[in-house]
Nucleic acid binder design. Structure first.
Lengths: 215, 215
DNA sequence: ACCTGAACACCGTTCAAGT
DNA sequence: ACCTGAACACCGTTCAAGT
């Protein structure tokens, strides 16, 4: 099997999911593909570019399965869930996607879809962009939280995070809420969290939907 | 001036803001502090721990300036803005904060505050946690977008991002919305974006506030 | 207790040499 | 056109030696 950009990117993705981004090196990838390190550079200009390709590939896996006749609320929900679905499939690659600027056309596809849905719902261009940005913010942050790293109590996906048992002792005087709500805070139900936030945003947007939908 | 953990963390933060995280190395920090590399290890166990300290220090800079008599809406807004303020002060460190799990007590402070505000507004524990998480998601994602990296058209803070001129050509047939809304999409007004999303969430939450506030 | 240089096992990437 | 080993300028960290 000849070396190719595709094969290298695939190897990188596998390695990220298996051992984490920090474990990825050009030398390890070469070893995985049984070739010399420098052979990689015939297909990929640099490690940074390779990681860009990883992000690109992962993003391109987004699949929208919106019912054609559905209202804009369901469409928006479906788009948000599609975005999130890739994070569940490639949890560790998601960190790469999220922490790296995407100037590629692939990254614009979801944005185009969201804007189209919102405009069809009757929103003006300016509002559509603002609403889309609020959604992107929420989705991005939720994935970040979910994928394991966040300024929150809960920790990552159980299979990855080893720090679960580590319970830092808290002064109930200083943290009355956090201590009294331990049960709710340690419960892990990312689906519920995501859907709740999605509901909040959709309801808020529904409240500002124009009276006369366009088209 | 003797070496100390504080001085090392400060040097690391300065270096991150000036040259980016990827430029930070123990050897560079040692050079900056005019000491041998290994001297650092008398005060900091590892580079990873140092970056944890960086995140901790940055987070601890959050200052809440909520008017004591203000309603919960204003309190929540103030907390979100306080969080965001540090991202504007330490844009590049924010990536470190956001992409690294915080199991420290410092990271729980904002959560405690948010929960207290929401409970005082009359929400039950479970709802308060869900609402708080939605807010954290939105804030995290917004900071990520703002700090420069995101699946969006706009790019980072102008002083950092050099890729601004790079305009990727888009097919108007394939991306009608993105091409027709170029003006709105390239406009950079992070304040407006953030406030808009904040409004959405606050309104949605106000719509579900219980009839009888607690206490 | 704090500092430090040498050394080890790694990096990404350039370059020149091969086919 | 693609592959590759050697070499360069880096890494983080261990260890043993200094004060």
């Amino acid at each position: 099997m000849p070396l190719s950009r595709e094969r290298i990117v695939t190897a990188a993705i596998d390695m990220i999911e298996r051992h984490g981004v920090e474990a990825v090196s050009m030398r390890r990838i070469a070893a995985e593909l049984s070739c010399g390190v420098m052979s990689l550079y015939n297909h990929v200009p640099s490690k940074a570019a390779l990681l860009d390709d990883v992000a690109e590939r992962v993003m391109s896996g987004i699949e929208f399965t919106a019912a054609p006749g559905a209202g804009w609320e369901d469409q928006v929900r479906a788009q948000a869930r599609a975005f999130r679905a890739i994070a569940r499939r490639y949890p560790r690659c998601t960190m790469v996607v999220v922490s790296r600027p995407t100037n590629s056309v692939t990254g614009l596809r979801p944005i185009e879809n969201a804007l189209a849905t919102l405009r069809e719902a009757g929103f003006g261009g300016g509002d559509a962009v603002l609403i889309m940005r609020a959604f992107v913010g929420f989705i991005l942050g939720s994935l970040l939280r979910e994928v394991g790293v966040s300024p929150a109590l809960g920790d990552a996906h159980p299979s990855y995070s080893a720090q679960a048992p580590q319970r830092l002792h808290l002064d109930p005087e200083e943290f009355p809420q956090v201590t009294s709500l331990t049960a709710e805070l340690t419960r892990r139900d990312p689906d519920a969290d995501f859907e709740f936030g999605l509901d909040l945003l959709v309801h808020a947007i529904a409240a500002m939907v124009p009276a006369t939908p366009a088209s």
